[in-house]
């Protein structure tokens, strides 16, 4: 084991806790920071501090935002009749990148996962109800990941929302665009067949 100065070890440990950073990457980043100018490290530290201080979850949709409500919730050109429910803020960014969805969002903050101790009360499910009260939302679109935890979350939400008497849909799953049928795997094909549409 190499013997690092204690402050360096502390930096390594802090970096290693970041997602996707292994011990080797942590070392590379730490050496880079020490070799670069002090201003560069200060700039990084300040950027982290500022982001932590000024970014909050929007009180309506829980998307990350500097102001409250967030720009999407404030935007009057958005169509209030569609509400897309997503697991994570990153999903909002993915959908926004497409630029085709003109409704608003609701960020759950995860998916049901009893193994990790995440139940319905740990997600922002109850906070959906007040958003539907004024009757402006005509359709709630569950833009939730396919997969066991996503499916369970969607089933739970569908039941919860049906009691509030609103139309609930879930995004389709099936063939990725640009793939030939013969190249698709059997499972995807099967799910695509199950979810076929009348034309």
């Amino acid at each position: 084991m190499p013997v690092f100065p204690p402050s360096f070890s502390r930096l390594l440990e802090a970096l290693h806790r970041l997602p996707g950073v292994g011990p080797k990457s942590a070392e590379r980043i730490a050496f880079f920071l020490l070799k670069s100018s002090p201003e560069e490290s200060e700039e990084l530290a300040e950027a982290i501090r500022l982001a932590r201080r000024s970014i909050r979850a929007c009180s309506q949709c829980f998307f990350l935002s500097e102001g409250d409500p967030c720009p999407i919730c404030r935007d009057s050109r958005r169509d209030p009749s569609f509400l897309a429910v997503v697991e994570d803020s990153r999903d909002v960014i993915a959908i926004e990148r497409g630029g085709f969805f003109r409704g608003r969002y609701h960020v759950l903050g995860g998916a049901l996962s009893p193994l990790d101790g995440i139940g319905p009360n740990d997600l922002r499910i109850a906070q959906l109800a007040p958003r539907l009260q004024d009757g402006q939302v005509k359709e709630v679109i569950l833009a939730i990941n396919p997969g066991v935890t996503g499916d369970a979350t969607a089933i739970f939400l569908a039941k919860f929302l049906r009691a509030l008497q609103v139309k609930v849909t879930r995004i389709a799953r099936g063939l990725p665009v640009g793939t030939d049928l013969e190249l698709a795997d059997e499972v995807t094909l099967r799910l695509a067949l199950d979810g076929r549409l009348e034309v």
Partner: peptide
């Protein structure tokens, strides 16, 4: 176990 019924389905 609020989500038991849901998980029963899956």
């Amino acid at each position: 176990g609020e989500s038991l019924e849901t998980w029963n389905g899956v």
